[in-house]
């Protein structure tokens, strides 16, 4: 029997995230809590990207658009005085799903590098569309006065309560993906990634399964965007920028595409690295680039792949 390294790390990371608010309170390090929040929100988005990229082979270079859409679903209602979370959250999920459905219907007719480029193009279109809307701050975006309201249930303004809301979304996203990829739907999507022609000759309408998967991932990422808008008290088109889409891909690849917890590990490592390196040198993107190249060349399975290797060696 191999020691369950991967399971151990998974439990340790989730436990650490669960007890962090108590720790940061004791150590008087509110900054850490803020960092963890950002990690968890982006990790939730990365988990959703991993569903289409890692399991489905759909390399979307426009996934940050959904984060922006989710944030606007907080900000626009708030601009008109509607703060209810029961309005904002379904709006975010619905808008994300709809954007994925419409763009996916077109994107998924292409493959490979064309798919990458067209997802990027749609995200940029969303970016420029919101830049052009002066009412909502144009390219500066707008401040959100207060977080989504769930009166009597959760106080999102409380940092600790908001923290656990975010943690629940992250764990929920992980659980959802683990169910989906092991269910029949997930088998169909992974089969289509592996050998699309064969899937069709077996009788699968692969286009539709891919599209459904793309919509689920879009909705999940928009939910992460809803968290992001609440976290920042702010929304702007910049959140949809292609560099952010690139970051999400970085997280998935670094952590291990097609592994359940990979995106979370990738998010943790990338954001901490960014934090550390950017205070040390202005050339930090160079170092990050080098790390990514090293991962792609020498550790195809990413961090989760390394853990798996460790597990087999012992």
């Amino acid at each position: 029997m191999h020691p369950p390294v991967r399971l151990g790390v998974r439990i340790a990371v989730l436990l650490a995230l669960a007890v962090l608010p108590a720790l940061t309170g004791a150590l008087d390090q509110p900054f850490l809590l803020d960092l963890a929040l950002r990690i968890m929100i982006l990790a939730t988005a990365a988990v959703s990207l991993n569903l289409i990229l890692g399991y489905g082979g759909m390399i979307s270079f426009g996934h940050a658009a959904y984060i922006g859409i989710g944030a606007y679903a907080v900000g626009i209602p708030a601009y008109y005085g509607e703060y209810s979370g029961y309005v904002q959250l379904p709006l975010a999920i619905g808008a994300g799903a709809l954007f994925a459905l419409v763009t996916g219907y077109i994107c998924l007719r292409t493959k490979g590098v064309y798919f990458i480029m067209i997802t990027l193009a749609f995200a940029q279109m969303a970016y420029f569309a919101f830049v052009s809307i002066e009412e909502y701050g144009g390219d500066d975006g707008l401040v959100i006065e207060q977080r989504s309201e769930f009166t009597g249930i959760i106080d999102m303004e409380s940092t600790h309560q908001f923290y656990y809301v975010v943690l629940v979304f992250l764990v929920g996203a992980l659980y959802l993906v683990s169910r989906i990829v092991n269910a029949r739907f997930g088998m169909a999507v992974q089969g289509a990634k592996d050998n699309d022609q064969r899937m069709q000759s077996l009788g699968f309408d692969t286009f539709r399964y891919r599209l459904a998967c793309y919509v689920i991932a879009g909705a999940m990422a928009a939910a992460a965007g809803w968290l992001m808008g609440n976290y920042n008290y702010f929304f702007s088109p910049e959140m949809m920028g292609w560099t952010h889409s690139g970051e999400l891909i970085f997280m998935v690849v670094l952590g291990g595409a097609g592994s359940l917890f990979g995106p979370l590990y990738g998010a943790i490592v990338l954001i901490i690295l960014e934090e550390q390196l950017s205070s040390a040198t202005v050339y930090w993107p160079l170092i990050l680039g080098a790390i990514l190249i090293a991962v792609v060349l020498f550790a195809r399975g990413g961090l989760e792949g390394m853990l798996a290797k460790l597990e087999r060696r012992k």
């Binding site: 169910r179 092991n182 592996d194 899937m199």
Partner: peptide, 28 residues
């Protein structure tokens, strides 16, 4: 399907003929 197990390969062939695959929860 090279990335899958031998059983998964045939499992997909069975699945193709057992109704639709919009089943998101039970483990295949």
């Amino acid at each position: 399907f090279h990335a899958m197990s031998v059983l998964d390969n045939t499992l997909l062939a069975v699945q193709a003929h057992d109704g639709h695959s919009y089943r998101f929860w039970r483990r295949a």
